[in-house]
Design a binder for these strands. Structure first.
Lengths: 159, 159
DNA sequence: GTTGAAATAATCTCTAT
DNA sequence: ATAGAGATTATTTCAAC
């Protein structure tokens, strides 16, 4: 799928706020409402727009503790990694997980209510994973930035 | 602000999909449309719902490289930390930044187009920060999980 | 929180470019 | 293949209860 300047402008707006009406959006990018809608629908269908969601403040809902967990696996075996990756989806406490190169293999961002909830998470998710050699937890003292926006500057792939 | 079971159900739905109509939402939680709308408006006003956004697939838009950067600061000085934190907001490449306890001080998740863009980012954002003692970059081989959902299980603070 | 009504918006079809 | 105009349908949102 190719994405032109107009699509990028639409994406730039929607990734900041997807609750403006199609009419407003069309206005801002200089299209008629139907033309604009067609583009947005296409972007959703093609999964350029993956999801449309409300972002909740975890603190205001009781999840005040964020932990950064680095995980080192026992062996570099494809099936072990795959099993581990699949287990990540099952745990709602894990908000992000990256497979990385370097001293450890996976980096997890875990968001929980309190230390008890974290311990429960460790028991349920990490200690049941054989093949973890070791893992290291550090506490996030502050979420300095949490953005869902993709940097769209300098991506003017025109057709 | 207190949040009852109904609010939590509303949040659980909206953080998965905020594009369903208020009527559908009301239906799913068992309220009339206006009653439901009032709750949602309140949740937005009170910033329990922080934002409403479209999530873009960074790969489909050209940002294929994710870097994990750990930063160690020179001194534990409040103003130095504060300045650093403020600079995080300025850089669109930084999607997440956590201030952490342990061997290093900040953890950054940086999303860019390619290595050149990353080098440009390092020069512009990190090398201009005096007070960084050192930083370490590792490449994300795979984004195993990226979720914006907050775990709402076991948070039944009723009134 | 509900019901009913008015104002808005989304979206479909069709036409034109 | 993509944009625009008009009409239909659906939704949001306001009052009154």
């Amino acid at each position: 799928m190719d994405i032109d300047r107009l699509d990028l402008r639409i994406l730039a707006i929607l990734q900041k706020n997807n609750r403006l009406s199609n009419i407003e959006l069309a206005d801002q990018v200089g299209l008629s409402a139907p033309a604009c809608l067609k583009r947005v629908q296409r972007l959703r269908k093609e999964k350029v727009i993956v999801d449309d969601v409300s972002i909740i403040n975890p603190k205001l809902v009781g999840n005040t503790l964020t932990m950064i967990v680095s995980v080192e696996m026992d062996r570099d075996q494809a099936d072990i990694y795959q099993r581990f990756r699949r287990s990540m989806d099952q745990a709602p406490e894990i908000t992000q997980c990256y497979q990385v190169s370097g001293n450890y293999d996976f980096l997890l961002v875990v968001c929980v209510k309190d230390i008890q909830a974290y311990e429960e998470f460790v028991d349920r998710v990490l200690h049941t994973q054989l093949n973890i050699r070791k893992f290291h937890t550090s506490v996030s003292l502050r979420t300095v930035k949490f953005s869902t926006e993709v940097d769209l500057k300098g991506l003017t792939k025109d057709r």
